[in-house]
Design a protein around this nucleic acid. Sequence first.
DNA 1: TTAGCAGTTTATAATGATTCTAAAAAAGTG
DNA 2: CACTTTTTTAGAATCATTATAAACTGCTAA
Lengths: 127, 127
Amino acid sequence: MKYIEKLRKSGLRPTKQRLQICEVLFNREKTFHFTINELEQKIKNHTSSKISLATVYNTVHAFEKKGYLKQIPINSSETYFDTNVTDHHHFYDLKEEKLIDLENSDVGPINILKKLTEKRLNQLKFL
Amino acid sequence: MKYIEKLRKSGLRPTKQRLQICEVLFNREKTFHFTINELEQKIKNHTSSKISLATVYNTVHAFEKKGYLKQIPINSSETYFDTNVTDHHHFYDLKEEKLIDLENSDVGPINILKKLTEKRLNQLKFL
DNA sequence: TTAGCAGTTTATAATGATTCTAAAAAAGTG
DNA sequence: CACTTTTTTAGAATCATTATAAACTGCTAA
Ligand SMILES: [Mn+2]
Ligand SMILES: [Mn+2]
Ligand SMILES: [Zn+2]
Ligand SMILES: [Zn+2]
């Protein structure tokens, strides 16, 4: 499997559960935006063996810590995660009712016009 | 009081609790970014009479519905609200560890460089 | 002014996403 | 295999938020 080494390199043991979750998360063409419960459903469809909810949480947090997943700041009762860990922008497609990724290069520079000191500017993180 | 008419116009009865909460929320110079619990603390400091937590939630949601408050999309266990209901940007000041408002006019236009149909573009909402 | 309705407040319970716990299972090591 | 460390797991605990329903308040028609 292609994920075994990836996990080992990160100091994570390549368990059956983690490998299955890797398949669901990363073996796809496009970015995946998901909640824990959506992920759990996908896992159920993908495999016959059951993975406990606690493990799904544990694994997602472990992957987040290692930089393989990112949380998405959004107003929802459930936390959203993103397999696209680049620094990118989210747009909401009102018609299709889903999040769209646009890379920084797709959006062009954010120009702060307001007068702020150089020092101040550099300590700002665009949300 | 200056808030009585504002509430009446919105179809909200100007109760003692709502007026007190208005004072805390809106009688200030700068934008206020807050959680329900932070607001509760401010209310405690501001007034002698106690307002129940349920009322704080009710009022904040009523004000949000009427357009006097806005939720802020952010990753936190608590929901953040904003007294600045203009369509504006949030930056995080890493040094001061707090959210900064920059108005759209302070940031300049967001240029989507990626090729998308006009129709598609218009149904996108920048988050 | 007052009766009565509708809207509001309140304490408390319920909900639900997430985290914690601790015991069992699995993986790494030699 | 023997041993240690990490991981999984079911279930309990936590905590922000919402629901409930009874008491209270504001409004207004008569
Ligand atoms: Mn996390
Ligand atoms: Mn709300
Ligand atoms: Zn994304
Ligand atoms: Zn703001």
